[in-house]
Structure formats: C-alpha cells, structure tokens
Design a protein around this nucleic acid. Structure first.
Length: 417
DNA sequence: TCTGGGGTCCTAGGACCC
DNA sequence: TCTGGGGTCCTAGGACCC
C-alpha cells in the first residue's frame, strides 16, 4: 500500500502558521510580481477566486470580501516544507518527496493503515502547524484518488481505499479532469467522447488508450486497475535542465538592464548546478516582450551558446549568457521577461576536458566554493559580479511580502510577555 | 497599469549511418 | 520498368505535473 500526504492549501497554510488570527479569514497568495493567484484558502475558494486568476482583475473582490493578500514567500514555504518532510521521515521507512507539498510513503509494512495515517497527520500538524490530508491505496494513482476524497469529503482528512468495491465506487464519482495525468487537453478530448469519469476511462480498450494517450495514459489506466507502474523513487535524480527566469517588475528597455538581469539569472543557474554537483555545456538565453500588451510591438527570441567544456563556473556561464543576449537584443522594444536555461548536464566528476582549454579550473573551483560559502553564511549575493548591477530596478514587484520568519535572523518573531 | 516559474516524458519527423 | 532495410540521434512540439 502507498500513502500520499498532501498539505492543504500549502502556501496559504504557511502564512497562517505565523499569523494564526487569519484562520477562517480568506487568504490568497500571489505569484512572483504579484501577478496571478497561486494559492487560496478554502474561504477564498468559496468566494469564487479561481486558481491562476490575474490579481488585478480581482482587486475589488479582495477589498470587498476582506481577502488577505500575500506575495509569494518561497523562502518561508521551502523551509516549512522541509520541516513537514523531516517530521514524516521519522515515521516511515521509505518515502518520495514528490513536490513542495506532497510526499508518497511506503505503507507496505503498515498493518493499521488508517491509524498510522491519522498519527502522521496529527504529528505534522502539532510539530509544524501545517494541516495535511492523507490518502492510502494500492498504487500511486489510486493514492492520489484517495487523497482527493480525503481532502474534500472526509472530516478527519484521512481515507483508505483498499477494498475493490470501494475503489470502483470512488472511480465512478471522480470527474475525468481530476485524475492525475489528465490535464485540460485530455479532459476535453475524453469528455467529447463520452468519457466523463475515471471509471469510464478504466473501462476503455487499452489499445485505444495507448494509441490516443501514449504509454503515459496506458500506465495511468493500469494503476487505476491496481497494477503498479510507478515505484516510489527514493533518490532524487539530478536535473537535466535548469532554468532561471523572471518577469520584470517594471518596463525594461535598455541593454544594460537586461544584461544585469540575465547575469543574475545565469549566476543562479550556476549556483543550482554547483548545488547538485553538475556541469552544463549549453547555455540558452531567452527574451520576450509582454504578450498581453496587444498594441505594443511583439518579439520573442532565444540564443543557444555551446561551451567547449562543461562548467558550473558563474563567470563562464554569465559570459556565455551575455553573449547570447547581445545577439538577440533589439533596441526600441519593451521587454517583460528574460531567462537562462542550462542543459547538456553531466556530473562534475565526468567533465570531458578540452585540449585547448585556457581556464585554470582548479583555481576557479576554489573561487566558486569560497563565494558559495560566504553567501550561504552572510546572505545571498553578498559577493557577486559587478555586471549583476546594484540598483536592480527591474526586479520583482512584491507588495505584500510576509517576513521570512524561519530563515532570516532579522525577521524572527518577537514575543512580548 | 496590472497576467508565474519551474520541471518531466513522449512522439514524430528529419538527418544521418551502414 | 525499376531504386532496400535496418538502425541511431536530435529536435520541436505537445502533453502533463506542482
């Protein structure tokens, strides 16, 4: 048996941990730049605020209904996620952290399924303040189904789907679009053919599923029939692509500002590479104007720069990224977003050196180590390249940011007795 | 005025190899 | 008149996830 623990309205719950008077008050959390709604408390859902809604279209609703608005605080959410995962790690032999707010747990050696799930749920709430729901079932896809019902209809927040007749009943009531692996496109495609519940999907001919939904669809169908196709992955694989991109908080036109932004993104990509012990040999830079500004001139471009030797050195990656940027930059346009993607990633022990390489890689490695150590200790970007800029007017808009209660000394809560 | 930021996997088609 | 058969690798695009 596999259990799936999923934090309820995770980002909204994180904000509530440190502002408990917001319990029962509608909350929304906005994406970077305070752009879209990316998390809602149950109260906000009831007010009809949809997921992904542009915030500016709902400003009046927020004001009128007393909705508390937060800018995304990923430092806080990441830290609380770690606390939740570490709490659960003590309770199970084997688990897979599937996303920032979800974890699959191996329950194969658990005899009292419901009791164990309840115990975990209670402990996580007590230790971290985060409410979770837990679904238990024979496969991952069915655990997702169990979790869906646990969160939505079960007061205790825990549901075990083991008995075949229960499973069948659950699938008959589950709308096709709620299934894990069925997105908007497939939901529409299937609905048009009369497949409206998970049960309808499972009843289809497997060859038809294979042909129309690829092997991914076939695996899903088998999982729903109780045949396991997805194992619990305990080691997290190295990323094959790493991307850092942001929309700008204001209009950006100049090459200089874009250069600062691209240099900053390339630096972050390099840090992420070093953190997972990898090197990359392809650096891709991209730029876009605002696709929603229909009256302004539109432009999207990208440029790939191939490096002769794989690297995770900030200086080299920034240099390549800026070279790419200069090749695609056009004057007179208003840019909205830029980003850097590094790929062709290999473990850093397996880098193929070039005969004509002019870089002292040993020395550079020490330099990067020192920079990472200093920045970890005294703060992000305390040591940085001059090209990353100082005033950084292009950076994010974050007008409703909560304190980093758990990751920044100056933001610690003060309790007055 | 104002619309996020990361990822993965699969497939088809083209280029190329012998 | 007529032009094979078997592969691999790469890329773009489309689907999905959170």
């Amino acid at each position: 048996m596999i259990a799936l623990a999923d934090c309820n309205n995770f980002y909204a719950s994180c904000e509530r941990v440190f502002q408990p008077w917001l319990e029962k008050v509608p909350i929304v959390v906005l994406s970077n730049n305070d752009g879209c709604v990316i998390a809602r408390s149950n109260e906000a859902k009831k007010l009809g605020v949809p997921m992904g809604a542009p915030a500016f279209k709902f400003e009046k609703v927020f004001e009128k209904q007393g909705v508390h608005v937060f800018s995304a605080n990923f430092a806080l959410y990441g830290d609380l996620s770690n606390r939740v995962m570490n709490t659960i790690r003590q309770e199970v032999n084997c688990m897979e952290v599937y996303s920032i707010d979800e974890v699959f747990m191996d329950f194969s050696d658990v005899s009292l399924l419901k009791e164990k799930a309840l115990e975990i749920k209670t402990k996580v709430k007590k230790w971290t303040g985060i409410p979770v729901s837990i679904g238990v079932a024979p496969t991952k896809a069915l655990a997702k189904v169990a979790n869906y019902y646990a969160k939505k209809y079960v007061k205790q927040g825990v549901l075990v789907l083991e008995n075949p007749s229960y499973i069948s009943r659950a699938l008959k009531k589950l709308p096709i679009g709620e299934l894990w692996g069925v997105g908007r496109r497939y939901a529409k495609f299937l609905t048009q053919r009369g497949v409206v519940t998970a049960h309808d999907l499972v009843s289809l001919d497997e060859n038809w599923v294979r042909k129309n939904m690829t092997v991914a669809g076939l695996r899903l169908v088998q999982e729903l029939k109780g045949i396991s196709c997805f194992d619990i992955e305990t080691t997290l694989p190295r990323k094959k692509n790493i991307c850092t991109s942001r929309s700008f908080g204001r209009k950006v036109k100049s090459h200089k500002e874009l250069k600062e932004a691209v240099a900053a993104y390339a630096t972050t990509c390099s840090q992420k590479l070093r953190a997972q012990g990898s090197c990359a040999s392809l650096v891709n830079v991209f730029l876009t104007t605002n696709p929603f500004s229909i009256h302004e001139c539109q432009y999207q471009a990208s440029r790939k720069i191939q490096l002769s030797t794989s690297t995770n050195d900030s200086l080299e990656i920034v240099k390549a990224a800026i070279k790419g940027l200069s090749a695609i930059y056009k004057e007179g346009l208003v840019y909205k977003k830029a980003g850097v993607i590094v790929s062709d990633i290999v473990p850093q022990q397996q880098v193929q050196l070039s005969l004509f390489d002019g870089v002292d890689r040993v020395k550079r490695k020490y330099l990067m180590n020192s920079i990472d150590t200093i920045n970890t200790r005294i703060g992000r970007d305390k040591v940085r390249l001059a090209v990353q800029g100082f005033d950084r007017k292009w950076r994010l808009k974050q007008e409703h940011l909560s304190p980093c209660y758990t990751t920044r000394f100056s933001d610690f809560l003060t309790v007055c007795l």
